[in-house]
Design a protein around this nucleic acid. Structure first.
Lengths: 207, 207
DNA sequence: ATATCAACTGAGACTGAGTGTCATATTTGG
DNA sequence: CCAAATATGACACTCAGTCTCAGTTGATAT
């Protein structure tokens, strides 16, 4: 049950994360050392690393996955898979409590400006193709290693990346809204897929 | 002009990379320090970092981009964009000289087993959605920031991720062949997109 | 209450990546 | 051959991350 120990641990963890995010936003990522965070939270450096294996981990702390799964389960049977993804995402994000939402905003901001965090976010927070594929396969009773499942997961992941890229290009856009728009567009098929190439008259070279 | 300086630099760089890849494969990533690499290549640690800003960079050294652009330019006008991508990739990889091909294999192997490298590969080697989008937009005279362009780039990127995931699940598969199969499948539309969801556990609540 | 066990914590040493500086060697151009 | 430019090595430094060890605190059974 929730002994004193557990509560203290949760409190310390939250404290560390809160101070860390504040410091990152104020001083910047590189200028904030783990020592600074530990000092601000009034624990030792050792303790920081006991709660968060790396400096990045203190930022990567989301709990959207259970909400996603929940929203997914509530969708009516017969919903096309791609639409289901779009609607599940929308309702899950809509249900985030304001605190988590705020945290998500700070995290998105950091992910947009700090390469290390961007990489870590892409790597871990469920953005892996195989993780998505496994969940889809579980829910539908398909082979997770099948080409179609993996490719669908890849496409969805690609859509998320596109949304992220769009928000990066035009800060101020809402990430959630952008992702919704991207998925809506995707429901009509892959854009530009059949666009014919112009002649090789004067194509620019990038290399 | 190719003075002695230039040649020496190229030689040192190649030397460093060759020794590094060999050491990584033999001893593993973590067990190989930059000092080891520098010692093997008979230069100082400082010199290593002058040639490669990070330890990861010594692995990330590809020259597929120009080949891709070249193959792309040679495609006949009117080729649908998605098909163009597939064919461009295939011919570009087909043209790699054996050395580069071997290097690519080692790199793929490391990217499959070492998380740090996997992250770095995803981040840099043209796998960024925006980089792909920019190139496409350049070639077609479109707005690189448009939703369709970014989404198309995202989908293509997702396909690459799916291929990578498939190869990881079943080592021994050829990455290039897998990617070709994935893109071929994608030409027929997004797989599973219209697959209707089954009920959660029992009969669905259609409210 | 108290003794005991398990877990949390702090201190500090250690490795390795990455940065910066400065003196020395080597190439290049005149 | 000389001087400017540049590549290099040696060294010191910061910081992330790992590890060990000892002290402390919470949980539990008597």
């Amino acid at each position: 049950m929730t002994g004193l120990r557990e509560r203290k641990k949760a409190r310390t963890r939250a404290e560390l994360q809160a101070h860390a995010l504040r410091l990152f936003r104020d001083r910047g990522w590189a200028a904030t050392t783990v020592d600074d965070i530990a000092a601000a939270a009034e624990v030792s450096r050792s303790t920081f690393f006991r709660y968060f294996p790396t400096k990045e981990d203190v930022v990567l702390f989301d709990d959207v996955d259970p909400l996603m799964a929940e929203a997914f389960d509530e969708l009516p049977a017969g919903t096309p898979l791609l639409s289901a993804f779009r609607r599940g995402l929308a309702t899950a994000f809509g249900r985030l409590d304001p605190e988590k939402r705020e945290l998500e905003e700070i995290r998105m901001g950091l992910a947009r400006t700090v390469p290390e965090i961007a990489a870590a976010v892409r790597e871990r927070n469920g953005l892996g193709v195989d993780q998505v594929a496994t969940k889809i396969a579980e829910g539908l009773g398909l082979d997770p290693g099948g080409l179609d499942v993996q490719l669908f997961a890849g496409v969805v992941t690609g859509a998320r990346l596109a949304a992220q890229s769009l928000v990066t290009r035009e800060p101020g856009r809402s990430y959630v809204d952008t992702l919704d728009a991207v998925l809506a567009r995707l429901e009509q098929g892959i854009p530009l897929a059949d666009l014919p190439l112009p002649g090789p008259t004067g194509p620019p070279r990038t290399g």
